[in-house]
Structures are given as C-alpha cells and as structure tokens.
Design a binder for these strands. Structure first.
Length: 415
RNA sequence: GUGGGUGUAGCUCAGUUGGUUAGAGCGCCGGGUUGUGGUCCCGGAGGUCGCGGGUUCGAAACCCGUCACUCACCCCA
C-alpha cells in the first residue's frame, strides 16, 4: 500500500475543524495587535537560509530539504519563516513604514528530523515579525501577543521563560568566561557537551544530562556580562511585562538555537507534552538584516508550533451548527425528483445532502441519522404523485406534509 | 545519526508451556418492520497474524534478518 512520507501527517476531517479554529484565533489576534498577513513562498534559494540561520546549526547542516532546480541552482524547502519574511521585506522595500512593520504568517515548514511526539518533518508554524524598532515595548507587545494567543485557545499550565543573550559582542566576552569556568570540569561533561565546548559553549547551559546540569551550577551568568545598553533594554522588557501582569520566569539557561538571535529571547513551555515541551519561542534578531545585506534594522519575532498546540487542545471543537437537511428520495420517480430538490435547496443556501447508495427508506433514514441531519425530507413515489414531501424532524420524530413547491419557503421561514 | 518499545480484522486489542478451523468489542452491510433512523434481537462480510528466512511432526507465538510505526537522545516550534 502507498503510504505518506515519513514524518508527514494527514489532517483528517475530524481534526480539520480544530485547525481552522487555531488559524482563526491566530489571524484574529495578530490583526488586533496590528500585524498584517504576509504569504511567502514555500521554497527559496538555499543561500537565504545558510546565511541567516547560521552555517553551523543543525538545521542548515543536516535538516534542510535541499534540491537542485532544473537550471542547477540550489533550492530549499523553508525550514522556518523569518528568513523568507526578511527577504520579502527587503525585496519589496517594506521598511519605509513610519511605524514598525508588523507582519505575521501561517503555514508549513520542513525539516528532515527523526519524527517523534510533537516533531514532524512537515509541520506548521504561526509566526510574527516586528521590524524596524528596538524599543523594548515592542518586545513586550510581541511576547504578550504570544502569551494571549495561548490563553485565548484555553491552554493551561504554561510557563513563559525570558532571557537576554546580549549582543554578539556581549556574548564573546561571556563565552570566554564560561569556557574558563568549564575547563577544569571538561572531563566530567557528557560527550555531547565536550563537543559543544568547542562549537557552541552556550548550549551546555541547557543540556539535560544531570552531570552537566550540576557542573554548570555556579557558572557565570550571561546577564552579568551584558553591556549597559543590553541590560537596560532587558530590564525595560521585564518592567513592561510586570506592568501588564504577565507572569514570567527569568531563565538564564535559555539559549536560542539559530545564529541570528540577539538580546531578548523567550519561549513558552507546557508540562503536558513530553520531550518537545516548547510550543512557542522567539527573540530579537537585530543582526539578521545586515547578514542579508539589508540596512541595519532591529527586529523581533516568534514562531508557534501548531502541531504541538493541537496536542494540547481537547479533541472537540464545536463548530457553528448549520442545520443539515437530508433528502431521502426513493422509488422510480421519487429519486430523480429528490435529486432535483437537493439542487434547489443548495441553491437557496440551505445545507443539504443525500445518500445515493440508499435504496430503501430505512437505509436512507439510517444515513440521515449517521450524518446527524436535523431534518429528513422524505420523497417517495406517493409524495411525488400528490406533489408533496414529508418533512421529518429527526430528533422529535414530528412529521408534516408540505407542498413540494413550498418546501424551500417553509424551511427558510420556519427554521 | 544513536538507543528502547510495538507490529494480529477499518479501529482498539485478546490469543495459555508452540497444537488442529485465529477471537472479542466497536465500526461496516443486511434481516427482524413489503415506506420510517438511533436502542434492542439475529445474521453476514472483512485476516498474506508487517515482510523474508530458519528451528520443529506442527509457528501468530521461538531464533535471525529486514521494513514500518512509536518513544527517547540529538536538535527544535
């Protein structure tokens, strides 16, 4: 049997209403906060991602779906949204906005990872980007939008972690100090961390191996090595969150994985998801525009993993109930007449359906029941001969005989 | 890329120390009601026991291999 590709999932009709609900909340809230939707391509030139995300990150090194175009140029399915948004903003010169340029997107991303709970090879993100200002209040706005988005969906027990990882200059000083601290303990760290010591020492801070966690206790914290400017910015963000009574916890071990992040970083976790507990995360990326040969432009954004959100939502999302009228037509003249009536009902804007397989009235009513129709319209040869139809309320079993010609009017006025 | 767990009907799962025709519940189809659904009663369809090889008189079960799914590491949303 033909199967879907590993790590890809079908969203079946049962679940689709849940997705529609999440997407509706995302669009509504982003719009309320002053963000406009942008729709960017699913693939870009590979160079865009290798230059923005960082050449030594796992995403670029081994997780991208990269393939040659027919002319030989290298293309990549987007592994995240920020790079494409920034590219589009630069290409279409969207930065001359008097205020910050605030954009949001919604759609699939692709990373070739080993699938597991809450992690897929094609997954969906809702993300926002606020471009062109480094006022700490825009940081607050973005974080609050993320927080409120989850609250609006009804998610429980969430934790907002915030941190500042400083500017690249700040980090250089700090990493030096961190390495000095770790050097005497290097031989007791896990194998991964020994490697990280050389490639990305910051990551050792959020290693889950107990030995490593213990070894980094008492390590110098990045906060103490921030420049005055970064420190002031971070404090202003915290004050802004407090003023709006958004609960947060400062997490000095919170390090973002993509190279373009700087200063404010944040993520929201849930304790109900197993290993992949982060449902939304983001941060400031003041250096990204420059890396993509644009004018220096401060920016901040977040991305939400929508599959993880669906795992936290209860199954049932009650969609608005539009009553369904089931046309039960049978018999030599009843069936064709019923098909015509079905067409007329739909043209009148009435939600209507039938079951072409059902031959007997019994089978038809059973189908009506399975489709959870509110009403059945029974139309057999007898009814057609007398130019009537029977309108049956499936819940109360109440039936009334209605003139065929008047049935649409009867439905539109009475129900 | 590394490690663990699991593969039996459309779905969820039983299946005894290896034993003869592989089961249940739900779902599906039909009958009980020649033109009235859900509940109830009765019946039916549906299976290469993931796949390949081996051990054995005999394998869904034991062994080896392989594939798939899944969880975790890694990484990240």
């Amino acid at each position: 049997m033909l199967r879907s590709v590993k790590g890809l999932k079908d969203i079946l009709p049962q679940q689709a209403s849940q997705w529609q609900h999440i997407e509706m909340v995302a669009r509504t809230m982003a719009t309320q906060y002053g963000f406009s939707e942008i729709r960017i391509p699913i693939f870009e030139f590979t160079e865009l991602y290798s230059r923005s995300i960082g050449g030594t990150t796992d995403i670029v090194e081994k997780e991208m779906y990269t393939f040659p175009d027919r002319d030989g140029s290298s293309l990549t399915l987007r592994p995240e949204g920020t790079a494409g948004v920034v590219r589009a903003v630069l290409e279409h010169k969207l930065l001359d906005s008097p205020t910050a340029r605030k954009l949001f997107y919604l759609g699939p991303m692709f990373r070739h990872e080993r699938p597991q709970a809450g992690r897929y090879r094609q997954f969906h993100q809702f993300g926002v980007e606020a471009l062109g200002t480094d006022d700490p209040l825009i940081d607050v706005e973005v974080i609050v939008l993320l927080w409120q988005f989850f609250l609006t969906l009804g998610l429980m027990d969430l934790t907002l972690h915030v941190n500042s990882i400083g500017t690249p200059d700040d980090r250089e000083v700090y990493i030096q100090k961190l390495k000095e601290f770790l050097e005497p303990r290097l031989n007791i760290l896990c194998g991964n961390c020994q490697r990280r010591y050389l490639t990305n020492p910051l990551r050792i801070l959020d290693c889950k191996v107990p030995v490593c966690q213990k070894s980094t206790e008492g390590a110098p914290t990045l906060i103490n090595y921030l420049s005055d400017k970064s420190k002031t910015h971070f404090q202003a963000v915290l004050d802004g969150l407090s003023a709006l009574e958004i609960p947060y916890s400062i997490n000095h071990r919170l390090v973002r994985g993509l190279d373009y992040y700087s200063r404010t970083t944040f993520e929201i976790t849930s304790p109900h998801l197993g290993a992949q507990s982060t449902i939304g995360a983001g941060g400031r990326y003041d250096g990204l525009f420059h890396a993509l040969q644009g004018p220096p432009t401060p920016a901040i954004g977040f991305a939400v993993g929508l599959e993880r959100v669906t795992l936290l939502l209860s199954e049932e999302i009650s969609s608005k109930k539009v009553p369904l009228f089931f046309v039960a037509g049978f018999g030599v003249i009843g069936k064709p007449q019923a098909f015509k009536l079905l067409h007329e009902l739909r043209q009148a804007g009435i939600r209507a359906d039938t079951d072409h397989k059902g031959k007997t009235l019994k089978a038809l009513l059973r189908s009506a029941d399975k489709l959870r129709a509110e009403y059945a319209i029974i139309l057999g040869d007898d009814e057609v001969n007398s130019e009537n139809a029977i309108l049956r309320n499936m819940q109360t079993k109440a039936q009334e005989i209605v003139k065929l010609k008047e049935i649409i009017q009867r439905i539109q006025t009475g129900y």
